[in-house]
Design a protein around this nucleic acid. Structure first.
Lengths: 176, 176
DNA sequence: CCGTTTGGCTAATGTCAATAGCTAAAGCTG
DNA sequence: CAGCTTTAGCTATTGACATTAGCCAAACGG
């Protein structure tokens, strides 16, 4: 239900209303507002992780990257509030949240593995991939792409551009 | 002062406290919470716009892109709450906000002009550039880059990658 | 010097998260 | 089956916050 109103506007009062229940009753099921958001975050990360895993199965290299990218964007657009929640950082010491967060990053690492990047090169590539996807999706869902131009096409172009950049990742540093 | 506590936690009560004033007194200077955030957004966009303009003056091509990118990230890290505010969309009909938002995008368009992109190609590139910068900065400031690897280096690598992608922007679509 | 603007104030309201303490039904357990 | 326990709801209350109404005094301009 959260996706309908936006994560920020998901109020316990409204939620209780929707469930036909008084709002203190919710505390029999959740810990606090923060706890609810954490739970949503864990759920969302697991869900997104599953989608990404499914998108990359049986593919590799540029094909896998492209497929995963589109799956990422599609999922985010279908569930904007869940997407927001999926970007919340785990609280330090929250083992479950940390684990599921790590899994998602691991999926990205796996899909980039075909490029044989080592050590920091690999980390740079993972960060770049995450930044590319998150940046686009975040701007898109916040309505920052005002112009009429086709957004699907822009995203496709961006993904292709990232793949092209990846191909010459190693040694990039030297070539100023 | 907002950068100290984070945009979300900037409460009118706390603000009044900091100013040594009772909180209803604030309404003599602002319209509402939403109005305050709008004002901060306009301010932030103007400020960021100025920084970006200064970073690109006298440069062109890859040099200008790199300089602007680093200025963008530096500014965002120095003023995290202002950065958040700068990403708020203008309300429809808010002429001033719309104008200053457009100016910032225009700066990016100008710096990409050296690549002679036309029409939708240019729009795609602008969107890609914004996504790249925002994605990285947003993940970084939210603490999503947990690993020890040098973040400066990752950003540099990302910017180089974007520039490389730009160089082969046109015709990208054809080459699957 | 007087009216007006400016910028503060108290008092009050409404929304929300959160806590305490009560109660009835459901589910076990011997 | 009888009795204890867990579960899941409830009312009442508190405290933080945004917001509005209405009051007042100092500063300011003709």
């Amino acid at each position: 239900m959260a996706d309908e109103v936006g994560l920020a506007k998901l109020t316990l009062a409204a939620l209780a209303d929707r469930l036909g229940v008084r709002q203190p009753s919710l505390y029999k099921h959740i810990d606090s507002m923060a706890g609810l958001q954490r739970d949503m975050a864990v759920h969302a990360k697991r869900d997104l992780g599953g989608v990404l895993a499914r998108a990359s199965v049986g593919r590799s290299g540029a094909d896998a990257i492209s497929s995963m990218s589109h799956a990422y964007r599609d999922w985010a657009r279908a569930h904007p509030a869940r997407y927001e929640a999926s970007n919340l950082m785990p609280a330090p010491g929250d083992v479950e949240d940390e684990a599921v967060s790590l899994e998602a990053v691991q999926l990205i690492a796996d899909v980039l593995a075909a490029y044989n990047l080592e050590g920091d090169d690999a980390i740079d590539a993972i960060r770049a991939f995450r930044a590319t996807l998150h940046g686009f999706v975040s701007l898109e869902t916040s309505g920052s792409f005002a112009l009429a131009a086709d957004v699907d096409r822009s995203f496709d172009r961006l993904v292709r551009g990232f793949i092209a950049a990846l191909a010459q990742w190693t040694g990039d540093t030297a070539a100023s």
